[in-house]
Design a protein around this nucleic acid. Sequence first.
RNA 1: GUCUCUGUAGCUCAGUGGAUAGAGCGUCUGCCUCCGGAGCAGAAGGCCACAGGUUCAAGUCCUGUCAGGGACGCCA
Length: 566
Amino acid sequence: MLKQAIADALKDALTRASAAGELTLETVPEVGVETPRDPDHGDYATNLAMVLAKPLRMPPLKIAETIVRHLAKDDTIGSVSIAAPGFINVRVATNRLAECARTILQQGGAAGIQPFGQGQRVLLEYVSANPTGPLHVGHARWAVIGSTLASLLQAVGFETHQEFYINDAGNQMRLLGASVDARMQELAGRASKMPEDGYQGAYIREVAQAAREHLDASFVGLPVEARVATLTGFARDYLLELQKRTLLALNTHFDVFYSETTLHEQDRVSEAIARLKQTGHLYEHEGAWWLRSTAYGDDKDRVVVRENGQPTYLAADIAYHWDKLRRGYDRLIDILGADHHGYVARIRAAVQALGGQDDTLAVVIGQMVNLFRDGEPVRMSKRTGDMVTAQEVVDEVGTDAARYFLVMRSTDSTLDFDLALAKRESADNPVFYVQYAHARICSIIRVADEQGLSPEVGETSETVFIHPSERQLLLKLASYSDEVVAAAKALEPYRLARYAQELASLFHQFYAHCRVLTDDRVVTQARLGLIAATREILRHVLVDLLGVTAPLRMASLTEEGASAQA
RNA sequence: GUCUCUGUAGCUCAGUGGAUAGAGCGUCUGCCUCCGGAGCAGAAGGCCACAGGUUCAAGUCCUGUCAGGGACGCCA
């Protein structure tokens, strides 16, 4: 809310100084405004003078003085100071901060968020698992990152859509059908042979059991090919439903589940191949057709049609991405696991070969999740039966903790997820810390309500908000809209979780230092407004962006509190 | 071997080229007459893996080395 205003004021000052002939600028440079680490250095700062020192061939301190002399005092800039070697430090007028809180209170947590997306259409594709088994924790991480990113981009003015690409074609699916068939034969008491590299997990037996209940009894006696074909479809549907249930439990909602098989059935794959041949991006070599992906920076060219005439997985994915482009999306975002990193260059190349710009497709790589239970690593393997599924994780720790933990780290970092820790309802657990701040505010407002007080931020704030913790809280509230925009531009949803924790921390500090409900009516009114604005922001970041609940009260506390007092 | 992510406090991690490197947990010490103590305050704890370079300024950018994760199919 404030960053742009300060940058504009500085830019105006530069222009005036230039017009006055005191600084000889050819163009007005980009003004970078940052928040200093040390609050003593002001609320916002710029290194403008130091950046200009070289081109102007003037000492940075002198430039800073000149800029400050031409800086118009407005309702945002309270005071300005210069610090060696050339920083310009701005302290925001407290009335302006109070005005920000008032705006948040009136317009809600989204107030002031710059809608730079301008209605551009964005398609996010994420999770996109094979329907050959339950989702694992890695999938859960992509799910949470994807859905949070979708909300985030929506909040900054993009029109976002979310899709799950079902990898339901190819050899893996036949193998799945054969694995289920083997288990089913077992259940029927017949001799069976699990195929080489067949799916071994306990869930295969579950699918087989379900198939026995839903398919006709005589089915077991059919020839192998017929059985496997039917079971492949059955298992696909069954496991996809399982995955969908998990995604819902993670509070993730897709607009479309897009089946790879339909691409083949509707000849989309052959169309895409024909198109690439026509535009000269494919060539024939050793009986196969290759995409010239090296033309767009890939390490080597990639086969799209095999020697035997069958299209590869890449061919289908190219067709899918072409379909996305033809549906009129301005930007495509794919979220992939680090295990698919090597795939990025070729799909980016394909998008460009299909006419996309080099920045049309953005790929977010999520590093892997290491699962722990009480410090002991838990193995994740699809082939063994003992893996912990995403569903089990959500069942164990709950949706809120699962979402928060899976999104709170940078996607570039591998995530250590300790189930015991996430489950613990204690201070270890950041999601409870943030939710507690929200519940605490609700509690105060409930008490105030009983006294006939409603939250408002009055006009006399300069004299009312005098405690440092009040200022810090106000500043944090005012920076929310800037933070949302920054997180969206960088495609870094984890920043929202950090912000939420920092805001909660500042609120708890304020709470410890300043009593809200006091004998002084003016102070009470102002502080009620402050915490109500804090609640708006907490609710927005938790519910609207992170997809986590913002509880009015902490349920387990009342129980514990009751028993503790007894 | 090539590509890629990571390496910052005992642990898990922040840190958009700027000022004295931060948070949470853990450890130690304080704070409940009072709006919810799942909280707050304080202390201890660091050659930012290592070596060069770029610049007014490097934890941050570049190159190399070391260590750990992931990937290198006419699998999906």
